[in-house]
Structure formats: structure tokens, C-alpha cells
Design a protein around this nucleic acid. Structure first.
Lengths: 205, 205
DNA sequence: ACCTGAACACCGTTCAAGT
DNA sequence: ACCTGAACACCGTTCAAGT
């Protein structure tokens, strides 16, 4: 019964049933051991979750910006960050639970800052571009967590448009809003809009 | 001991100490009653929280878009929505916990859709503008919840820039990223960027 | 060094029983 | 109709005691 074993089994339980499915007592039963043994090896629940997050952080793939221009590379980083978080719900859940979201975001920030400099930006322009881009991308990801995550999912706004007849809106507009939106497409469009507005035009060649 | 009294006391406890501070048993003690009495009156914890959220929803101020142009009115709605959620942490916490965030967002969506139509947009252009704007504003709010909310707050990214020396970034850029960013300013700039890109230019007059 | 047992201080919820 | 008491099935954590 070494530390690694405990952390691995705990992680397996999390991957299967989410944060709510892991309790110190259930984990102890799963390991065939008294709950208190876990405390001796890895400490309390907080430490345990922290160790799991450490492991997952170490396994993260490096961010590989692809493309010939800074603009294309920033675009690719934005998309890959979103899809990574999308693919590993446990990673985002743990980093939120433990208040370690900044760690998750940092590698992406470094790349974006570097590429913005490569695009010719500096000073206030660079800072403004970086913050607008990163907050927006982070915001889309945060929205995913809140409405699509392991938290309870209620009705979506487009469904509510069907329930109550909103005032001062023409039927055509209401019909549009009743359609579920393609989040990926909205994300892609929004990022492109920001890049257009924030980056200098690509040099020819 | 009527229903309203129970809901009010429960809400007061929430306002003071957040979601974690309210338990059925503590509430019962506060009311000088057995825990089971609450179940007879309002049902379980879920129903209780739902009633509190109902009350808070009914008390929400109406959204008043201010400004002479659709652009100004949309801008004001975006800002007022963010500041409302900022001012009532309990409202956002409950709506997330109960999966009722769509309810919160809908009134704002209605106004934005109406104003975009007033600005001359329709069809795909209107849908694209509405989704980009609403997701971005919603994203900023979601970020506030995740990093500034009642959840645990860890280090921020700009602090991490000081800890580890990032590779491939010039000292000037790193210095910029080490400065804490003014979230309100970033939000304002980003919304303005999107409005510039999405709305037709204001007609003269 | 490593693990158990007992205990403490909590949860939400159900349900028979009382008035 | 309204409330209590007892009980069930859980939590995380501590700590003395065992080997």
C-alpha cells in the first residue's frame, strides 16, 4: 500500500463518477483498508485531490502552435486550449475545486504573449490584445464548465425562448433565438473577430 | 412557523455565509425547531434553495438599456448585466447550483436581440452578432464566478509569471504580463471591439 | 513505520408516532 | 394539520492503541 497506489485508485474513481463519487471512506473500502490509513500516507482529501491534479498536470501535452503566421498560431492555441479542457473534464473540475485554474492557463498565456510580440505588438497594444484574447477564450471555457460541466444542467436559453413569448421582438428574431447555437462555431467566429481587430494585417509573404 | 419565515431565515443564512453555511440541521436550530419540520413545510434542500432563487429572481431590477443608439444600448446592457451579477453573488451561486443560469441570462438576451434588430441586422448576421456578444459577456461573468467567486481562490496568472521564468518571451513582455490586469477595463475594451466589428456604423443623426 | 478501532462532529432524509 | 424522536446511511478527521 504505497502512496502512488492510493492516488491512482482515487483518480480512477474520479474519472468514472466525478468529484461527488470520491469519498475517503469509499476509497478506503475500495483499497481494502481503514479510512485512517489514507491519512497516514497522503493526508486529507485536499492533499489527495492535489496529488491527482499534480499527476494530470504533468501529463498535459505541450502546447504546439501551428501555422505560418502569428495570427494562425494564436488561433490554433486558442482552439487547442479549448478542446483540451473540453476533453479532460476532470482536469478542469479539479483545478476549479482546488483554486488552481491559473496553472492551467499559464502555458497558453506564454504562447499568446510570445506570438503577439512576434506579430509586432508591444506596450499597451500588446497588453490589451493579450488580455482581451485570453479573457475571452477563458470565458468561453468557463461557460462550458458552468453550463456543460459536471454541475447540474438545466434548460438552455434557446429553450426558454420557446416557453415565454418575449416582448418587443419580431417573430423572425424570436425564431432565430429559439435555435440552439453551435458553440464551436460561435467560439471560432468570436476569436477570429478579435484577431482581426487586434492584430496588424499579415505582411505579404 | 410558515413557509415564508423558513425561506427568509434560510436566505439570511446564505447571504451571510454562502452556500456551505446552510444546512437543514443548522437552519432548524436557528428556527428553534426539529429538522424534520422543514421537510413538512418546504421539502428538501433542493426545494428550499429553489424557493430562495425564486424570490431573488422576482426582486431583480428590470434591464433598462440606456443610450441614443442601439450600439450604446447594447453596451449598457452588457455592462449592467455584468455588474448585477457582480453585486449579487448569491444569485449567481444559486442559479449555478440549481442549473438555472439560463433564466438569469434570458432577459438580457431579449434586449440584445431586439437592439440588434433595431440596428438593422437580420438573419445570419443577427444570429452571429447575438451569439458572439452573449457568449462573450456570459464568458466574462463565468470567469468572475470561477476565479473571483465563493469558490476557493488560488494564485492568479500574473502572479505565476513572477514565479517561473517563461521561455521565449522578452523581459519587456514578461513585465507586462506580471502586472495584474484591470478586469473591468478588459471587459469594456472587448465589448467595444465586438460591437465595432458586428454592428453597422451608426447612421449620422 | 504502518495500520486499526473508536470516537467526534457533522450531513440529508424518511417515517412512525404523537398532539 | 403540524411537529417530534428515532433511525438510516452517509461524511471528513483525529488520535490513542496496537504490531
Amino acid at each position: 500500500m504505497d502512496d502512488r497506489k492510493i492516488v491512482e485508485v482515487a483518480r480512477a474513481m474520479l474519472e468514472e463518477g466525478g468529484l461527488a463519487s470520491l469519498s475517503m471512506r469509499k476509497l478506503a473500502t475500495e483499497l481494502g483498508v481503514a479510512p485512517t490509513a489514507i491519512y497516514w500516507h497522503v493526508g486529507g482529501r485536499e492533499e489527495l485531490l492535489g496529488r491527482i491534479l499534480d499527476d494530470m498536470t504533468a501529463e498535459r501535452p505541450p502546447i504546439l502552435p501551428v501555422g505560418d503566421t502569428p495570427r494562425a498560431r494564436i488561433r490554433s492555441v486558442a482552439h487547442s486550449m479549448r478542446s483540451e479542457v473540453h476533453l479532460t473534464p476532470l482536469l478542469r473540475q479539479l483545478s476549479i475545486e482546488l483554486g488552481r485554474t491559473a496553472e492551467l492557463a499559464l502555458p497558453c498565456q506564454v504562447v499568446v504573449a510570445r506570438e503577439l510580440a512576434a506579430a509586432g505588438l508591444s506596450g499597451d497594444a500588446l497588453e490589451h490584445a493579450a488580455t482581451s484574447l485570453l479573457y475571452t477564450v477563458g470565458g468561453f471555457i468557463a461557460l462550458d464548465v458552468l453550463i456543460g460541466g459536471h454541475l447540474r444542467r438545466g434548460p438552455r436559453t434557446h429553450e426558454l425562448w420557446s416557453v415565454l413569448e418575449p416582448e418587443g421582438v419580431t417573430p423572425e428574431v424570436a425564431d432565430r433565438m429559439r435555435r440552439p447555437s453551435d458553440e464551436d462555431a460561435v467560439f471560432a467566429r468570436t476569436v477570429d473577430l478579435l484577431l482581426d481587430a487586434l492584430l496588424p494585417p499579415d505582411p505579404p509573404g
